[in-house]
Write a protein that binds this DNA or RNA. Structure first.
Lengths: 236, 236
DNA sequence: CGGTTTTAGTGAACGGTGTTTACAAGAGTT
DNA sequence: AACTCTTGTAAACACCGTTCACTAAAACCG
């Protein structure tokens, strides 16, 4: 069965251990603790050996980002699947809550993936996760509600492109979106929802609300309510 | 006039140069380039000498954060003052735009101050800047519009405390807020506005919109419009 | 099988980092 | 002038990313 040679198996195993060690260091002692020497120490090898697996410390960190995104995606998908209500509104709510929960439980990972200046070109898995989830949820049965003329005309081009990206993303998985379900107005509100979701979660993770919030969860839920009703998921 | 001794003046000057060098390094070559040795090199001294001014590298970074906040505050206040329209809605818009402009022009600073995991205890100047600006603008003549019962009851306590903090913050500067102008519903919407403002700006700075936005400014302005109308600044 | 190539790992080295320590030299004080 | 306080230095320690020459073992091949 395993076509891999002995050497390939060992290499894959070592690579797995490297990622695992890097992740543990990030979680337990922060971004700056993810050093080549610390990772190597964990594996019982020397630092230069890691260059057989990654071109540089930077490349390893990028890999780490991708791993984090993949793991987060798995969590989000799982929590989405756990919602058996059949109501899209509930599903959206479940995913948003899942995102917040994940971010609060993994602040270092969140900071690395979602709050580091980076070139917009290099994309990790996050983009596709977002597209898959958003696309899937939108495609289901979102009530058509928003007129295109609500959104400024300058944005039409970008939003139309994003619309196409969304359609392509879900069509890869066999789902098709009818044109009347996904208009520009709706796309715009999806983006606005992402702004609010991300804004709240990041502020909470980074402790940047302008006052001490003793219990942020109801505030988040309240924000979600407004967000969902605004986007048309009011009584789903 | 200058009561300071010669030594005190020299010390203050050196400290100023340290901050200046640290800032330049952050701006030009990123957070990781702000090293004690690099700063010392810039001043023509040796690294251990910096320990006469700061307890550690970490303490220096914290000072850097405060400096950044102070500078940003100065920019925001200036842009606020530059708006001579007399309309509070225009002033809020001016400050929000100023915040976005500053963040885009200073991504490294923004990331350091607004997107680093930190203990919520240690507060830099940002909190007071926010309070001053928000308080001042709210105090002016915001149309009463939002009922308290819109906000979940669990939030009342936190929001009431924040309300008091706001009142105190502006009263220090001689401004008083009448009770009927600042109710919990309004406070809640102020917080929600901060969520959206921060969310958009951070997403733009970090390139984390789910698709390539070729021209984010109109999207920001559009968001601002919705935000202001929601908070009651519609036709000010 | 025997010889060759490919590979994963080592150890030493280079220049960089934060931090501590012992020490010098000047400024301020009495 | 003698003394103290302050600001700097140089040396050292342990850590960092990275390069390079080298070894030993695995894989390949005639």
């Amino acid at each position: 069965m395993t076509e891999a040679t002995r050497r390939e198996r060992l290499r894959a195993e070592t690579e797995r251990e490297i990622r695992q060690a890097a992740r543990a260091l990030l979680v337990e002692r922060g971004r700056d603790a993810v050093t080549l020497r610390a990772i190597a120490r964990e594996l019982g090898i020397t630092a230069p050996a890691l260059y057989r697996y990654y071109d540089s410390h930077d490349a390893l960190l990028r890999q780490l980002c991708d791993d984090i995104c993949a793991d987060m995606a798995a969590v989000l998908y799982a929590d989405l699947a756990a919602d058996t209500s059949g109501h899209v509104g509930c599903q959206v709510r479940a995913v948003c809550r899942s995102f917040r929960r994940w971010a609060l439980a993994h602040p270092q990972e969140f900071a690395l993936v979602f709050a580091s200046p980076r070139d917009p070109l290099d994309t990790d898995q996050f983009g596709s996760v977002f597209l898959q989830l958003a696309g899937r949820l939108i495609a289901s049965n979102l009530v058509v509600k928003h007129a295109d003329d609500e959104v400024p005309e300058v944005l039409h081009e970008d939003l139309a492109r994003f619309q196409q990206v969304l359609i392509d993303a879900v069509s890869v998985h066999g789902v098709t979106i009818e044109d009347d379900v996904l208009n520009l107005g709706k796309i715009y509100h999806v983006v606005q929802s992402w702004v609010r979701l991300y804004g709240h979660v990041a502020l909470e993770v980074f402790g940047r609300f302008p006052f001490a919030v003793s219990n942020p969860e109801p505030m988040f839920d309240s924000m979600l309510d407004h967000m969902l009703s605004e986007i048309g998921f009011a009584d789903d």
